[in-house]
Design a protein around this nucleic acid. Sequence first.
DNA 1: TGCAAATGTGAGGACTGCTCATATTTTCTA
DNA 2: TAGAAAATATGAGCAGTCCTCACATTTGCA
Lengths: 214, 214
Amino acid sequence: MKSNPATRPTEEEPTLRRKPSQKRSRARVEHILSCAIRLIERRGSDAMRMSELAEMAGISIGSLYQYFPEKAAIVRTLAERYNAASRNCIASEFAKVTTLAELRSAFSALFDTYYDMFLAEPVMRDIWSAMQADRTLRKIELVESRANGKLLADTWARVAPETPRERIENAAFLIMHLGECTMRLAVSVDRPEGDRIVKAYEHMILREFVADAT
Amino acid sequence: MKSNPATRPTEEEPTLRRKPSQKRSRARVEHILSCAIRLIERRGSDAMRMSELAEMAGISIGSLYQYFPEKAAIVRTLAERYNAASRNCIASEFAKVTTLAELRSAFSALFDTYYDMFLAEPVMRDIWSAMQADRTLRKIELVESRANGKLLADTWARVAPETPRERIENAAFLIMHLGECTMRLAVSVDRPEGDRIVKAYEHMILREFVADAT
DNA sequence: TGCAAATGTGAGGACTGCTCATATTTTCTA
DNA sequence: TAGAAAATATGAGCAGTCCTCACATTTGCA
């Protein structure tokens, strides 16, 4: 990844040179992203060339840069989607929980959904990898993880108000972290073995934190 | 990361154009690596420029390429050292184990040493990140992880021969994986919080797998 | 229809990793 | 020690990369 020497990014958010009209650009952006996904799946995001992306999308380099200010922005967009998907998955899993037993099965479901989500979208492996390599993305991921941890902690506190808040907070962050380790697993290990390990993690988590709900 | 278009890497191991004499080059290589570490710590391995590395090391670009065939080889070398360090740490921790109780404390020690190793060498954060981003390095890491898992499994089987081998194998890989998650933790989270979580992991592992040794 | 504004284009600029013809140093031999 | 041969050092420059910007084309609207 090269630093752009011509334009110093003084403002935080890198801006597009011209902003395309809302509705029409939407489809274009989606099309570019789907091409990018194909390319990234093939050889990883580093090896993806902006020129080949433009060619595959059937547009010129210049046009490409009207929809994404820089190459990294494409990866970032994909990463944000991955984050959003995790967030939604977690939110929907915990929203309906009202008892400790339900919390327990929400944990199981969470791990499975997380893992399946990764398997269903192979490109997420590479996006996740790219996130690990980039300091900024890593920081974003951490913030996201904490937010998810808080959501989990709140649910837990709602269901079992007698549990000390501090213990819940710790456990929640730990569980989120372990959830991300499951992602890592999906990145490196393949199907049948990964499944077993995910199950083992689920079991461990449940035994450690919600054993009393059995 | 660019693919080199001039020389097709037909052979597996990329070869240097001229191989420097053994003993003298050793010191040079070390010097280059220590400069690389400083640079990588500062801004990450992607942002490290071969030109600035050469300048810092006080040699020319050409000379630099006599010691490392490509930029990635520098990261790879550092990654191998990190792998070797993990391997040694694990080997020395398990070599002296003769009882289940000792295995138990070896687990604790393992996590702590792993984690401390990472904190002591901040550059390992970036090396680890680079490993995650590179498919080849990720594969190497997985092999390494399995080898370590086998070492752990063998020790375990030696100490508790009555435990079913399959259960041990599963647990061993899981524990190794969790150990690597501890790395991940050291990469993203800072000191006091990381410590707590490492402790929690230790506790979880012990409770799950060697509770009978209490 | 005519004419702004929006959008598309691709040659070229700045920077990179890496090479190779050449210069310098070291080592070896007489 | 002289002088050749081998080992090592050098940096201009090559090919490849991301990204820009002056210009061409299309679109929306009176």
